[in-house]
Simulated scan of single mutants.
Amino acid sequence: MCAPEFFTVGYAINPWMDPGTTVDVELAVKQWTRLRETLVDLGHTVHVMQAQPGLPDMVFAANGAFSVEGVVYGARFRHPQRSAEADHHKAFYAEQKSWRFVAPTEVNEGEGDFAYLPGRLGGLVLAGHGFRTDLRAHAEVQVVLGRAVLSLQLTDPRFYHLDVALAALDDHTITYYPGAFAEPTRQILRNAFPDAVVADEEDALAFGLNLISDGKHAVLNSEATGLAAKLRAAGYEPVPVELSELKKGGGSVRCCIAELRG
């Protein structure tokens, strides 16, 4: 994770961002801190990257890389406003000394457009494209990680990253909003995941799908009450958190967390 101490909305690179929006940085840090504390309280270890002035979106740490079993596929951002973030993420993994970092040649935005299901096909990468990550990066990540990749086409600009339209709940199961995807992708998802928890538009727009789950607890935006009820009915324990300030930048829970799969 990376604290939002320099968070602001000074440009617009997704439909949620309005450069005229006032950001309460103190509240953003308070909400982010509560998210970090929630993860620690659930038994997880959280590493914190140093925030950098001039890079307000570094708080959305998920976009900086994608790791599977100690191999890290680095990010190459679509927009120049975020491109400098990639080197800071690379440096973070280098400092850990237990990760093999692979620099990308194709445009991709890390876990923003990649999700992982270790229980499917010996490890299945769900990969989004349509707005940020180039389709060619799907082939590249397949080679780098040695895992099967299922490409999913996003067509609604409000859901510009996969992680605002779909989330892994455990090693086999996902939750997603069908309306974010092209019809052929919807059919693929229906066939491949008949047991998925299907979200409606209201909870998708509340960033409910921008969640992180450890297989038991699903930490999600507190506004997504309908999805929380569906998750509870499916056997997961919803853990709501409020991230109203960070939503102004087009992100929520999942965007703030880069999962380290050792």
Rank of each mutant, 00 (worst) to 15 (best):
E85L: 07
H44E: 03
S151R: 13
Y11I: 12
L124S: 08
V46G: 04
G215C: 00
D24G: 05
M1V: 07
V198G: 03
L154I: 06
G43R: 04
K247A: 13
D134E: 14
H79V: 12
P15K: 03
D171W: 00
L55H: 13
H129R: 10
Y160F: 15
P56V: 06
G251P: 05
K247C: 15
P157T: 10
Y116T: 00
H79L: 10
W32F: 15
H172M: 01
A218Y: 00
G54K: 12
P157G: 02
A51F: 11
L152R: 07
D24I: 09
D156Y: 11
P194W: 10
E140R: 11
D113I: 14
Q81R: 13
D57R: 05
R136E: 14
V25S: 05
L205F: 01
K247H: 13
D134A: 15
R158G: 08
I212T: 05
V253I: 12
A165S: 14
T133K: 04
L135N: 03
A84W: 11
V149Q: 14
V68F: 11
F131E: 02
G74L: 06
A84G: 09
N14E: 13
L220P: 02
G110Y: 05
E183S: 14
R78W: 05
G215W: 00
A199D: 04
R120N: 00
Y160W: 11
E237Q: 01
D163T: 07
K247Y: 02
K230I: 00
E111D: 08
H79P: 08
Q31D: 11
G43A: 04
H217N: 06
V72Y: 04
F6L: 08
V46P: 02
Y177N: 01
V125L: 15
